[in-house]
Amino acid sequence: MSADDWAIRTTDLRKLFDNTVAVKGLSLSVARGSVTALLGGNGAGKSTTMGMLLGLLEPTSGHIEIFGCDLLARRSDVARVVNFSSPYVDLPNRLTVRQNLAVYGMLYGVPDLTGRIAELAARLQIGDLLDRRHGTLSAGQRTRASLAKSLLNKPKLLLLDEPTASLDPDTADWVRTLLMTYKTEENATIFMASHNMFEVERMCDDVIVMKRGSVVAHGTPQDLLDRFERDNLEEVFLDIARN
């Protein structure tokens, strides 16, 4: 594969907090147009890796390329084609959904912002929520509003942290379908951290498992099932976590 075929490439990425190693020597490549899951138990280094890929955390050493661009050198340029959603990073609660989308639309330089908000409102079924304050929404509604924000700029790389956390099975299924449709339409790459193994099996082409800051397994879901001789990813995850 040529350099243009990768959405994300990290080389020997390390992150130290004081004397604690959060990520050690992470080298990974995520193919363009793929859906890749980053798995790992608590403290495995997933959030730190996500933070570094978003440019919110500075690596202690190593290199990150997004679509062939050095993230540290051109963070703002890179950020225009990337977006993210996380239940752990809020949108301002006192602003309405529409106001939040308008603000972030301007920050991302979205053309025809009014039209784009209307389009996303229809697609994410949040038309009736647009003029409600973000703080008054239920968990499921917040997730949809946050997804709308993350799709505003039609990102080529979508970073998702637990995209269906706290959603009921029906809504979670609806969100997964929406994400897969978006990925196909825009030829986007999705990189997501998840603890939902069913979701990973259903959506992902590639799975990266981290433990104590390092990648301990990497392959397609089927590769991992074969390698660990298990029936599902949940068992693979438990094998890795407990050994």
């Binding site: 440019g55 340029d77 950020a79 225009r80 977006n83 993210f84 809020d90 949108l91 972030y104 920050l107």
Partner: peptide, 14 residues
């Protein structure tokens, strides 16, 4: 207070 710094500085904002 609104825990919004992550969204803000992950955007193209310089």
């Amino acid at each position: 207070w609104s825990r919004n710094l992550g969204h803000l500085f992950a955007s193209p904002l310089r």
